[in-house]
Design a protein around this nucleic acid. Structure first.
Lengths: 245, 245
DNA sequence: ATTATCTATAGATCTATAGATAATGC
DNA sequence: ATTATCTATAGATCTATAGATAATGC
């Protein structure tokens, strides 16, 4: 976080204690050189994910990440070439899992509902994998989600390969909605997705404004409260959009 | 944008031509030292607004802003002390105007509708001043809106004094919604605002993802298409939230 | 022999300030 | 006399790489 360098780091403070090659942890079943490398990379990505999600990609320096991961900056260049490489690796690490789960959930629901899926059912299936991971995926997934929210409201989104993971799940969502809302205009289905997406991402962003506004009645991370309300909200909105032609 | 220093700026390239004190523009009615100072500050804020909205506060250096404004970095420190000072000045410059307009629009609508405001009417009144400025306020306001969208999905929001401008308009909105939805739970009014806010800010963010997803059917800045749809969407959602107790 | 990691450092860039200078205001 | 602006520069920080070293793999 090169930002408000709280205390301008003096050359002395900057100096990390010389790092001794940590002895390979014998207790770890998954030992060996390759495994150790993978664990190091994961530590680097965990650190980057956390820092990026709080400060954005330009609010974090390679050294910040290295310090938090407990390694030298040179190692980050070795594994990921440069900062963009780290950012992309962070974005991609969880992209496949969550979007495969979305497609699976929508496919399952489509099958289960026969030819008559409900809007609520479709929206719920699309969102459920994310909310599930927000509740049970620990700090890592919550950091990732906040980072996605940040990217979603910026010009950064289209940049990388992320959309190749996210877009197919969205298209599957729109395809199902088209079935359930046969009278809706094609463009309204996409506007509907856009509004849904905005409300969803704000819900797992780092913005906790609602807590102050509501005088503590709502907690920003109360996903048990958010999920059913957001499903109801989006379903009603989609129905209104689909009807007003 | 200190990021991908496209071409690493050499010391030579960095050197700006020595800046001669531009002769005061005699054609300008608004001359005089103070006026000139105000115009310079406005140029600096315009540059900062544009750059911040594209790259975020940490993706822009003071020198980037100075270069775009055509002044030296020392002048930015003279007028705004430091980068945070510039950022806050940018955020506050248009905050009063748009939120006063919101409150006025809601007050006018409340009066006009007697004791029976409709959800659509309330939501429209809240959003209208923003959409109006997006359409007619030129590049400056569009940059500002994109910056607000960026801040809204990050941890930066609460930081400054911005919320003192934005929060009262939100509370007025919630107060009117409470009248129109007497059966709604108090917390649902705030969740409703959160979802509305997410959909609204994404709509004026720099994310143009919808254009690709919809194969060109929707244009990200087509506010004439967005405004009525978003009003219908949010009204339906609020009604659903307010009813499901 | 190869791979993962650390040491040391070059070169660029950033923020911030001290001090000079030119215009305006009184 | 004051204010707005420019010149020059200090000091910190950033990214990236060359080269050394220690562990693993064959």
């Amino acid at each position: 976080m090169p930002k408000p360098p709280a205390v301008p780091k003096s050359a002395a403070a900057r100096k990390r204690p010389p790092q001794r090659r940590a002895a390979p942890d014998a207790a770890l079943a998954d030992s060996g050189k390759a495994a150790r490398s993978r664990r190091t990379q994961a530590r680097i990505l965990d650190a980057a994910e956390e820092l990026f999600s709080h400060h954005g990609i330009y609010g974090v320096s390679i050294r910040d990440i290295a310090d938090r991961a407990g390694v030298d900056t040179a190692l980050l260049h070795y594994h990921f070439a440069n900062k963009d490489g780290i950012y992309e690796a962070v974005m991609l690490r969880r992209a496949g899992d969550v979007n495969e789960a979305r497609k699976r959930a929508m496919d399952d629901y489509a099958r289960k509902s026969g030819g008559k899926p409900s809007i609520e059912g479709i929206v719920r299936a699309y969102m459920q994998p994310v909310f599930e991971r927000l509740r049970t995926g620990g700090r890592g997934f919550n950091n990732y989600a906040a980072l996605i929210a940040l990217a979603n409201n910026s010009a950064l989104w289209g940049g990388g390969t992320v959309k190749e993971y996210f877009d197919p799940a969205v298209q599957r969502l729109v395809d199902l909605l088209r079935l359930a809302l046969p009278k809706a205009r094609e463009e309204d289905l996409y506007w509907g997705y856009q509004f849904l997406s905005g409300a969803l991402t704000l819900s797992y962003s780092r913005n906790a404004r609602i807590e102050g506004l509501s005088h503590g009645r709502c907690r920003a991370n109360d996903y048990a409260a958010i999920e059913p309300r957001l499903v109801a909200w989006c379903a009603a909105g989609l129905r209104a959009l689909g009807a007003c032609r």
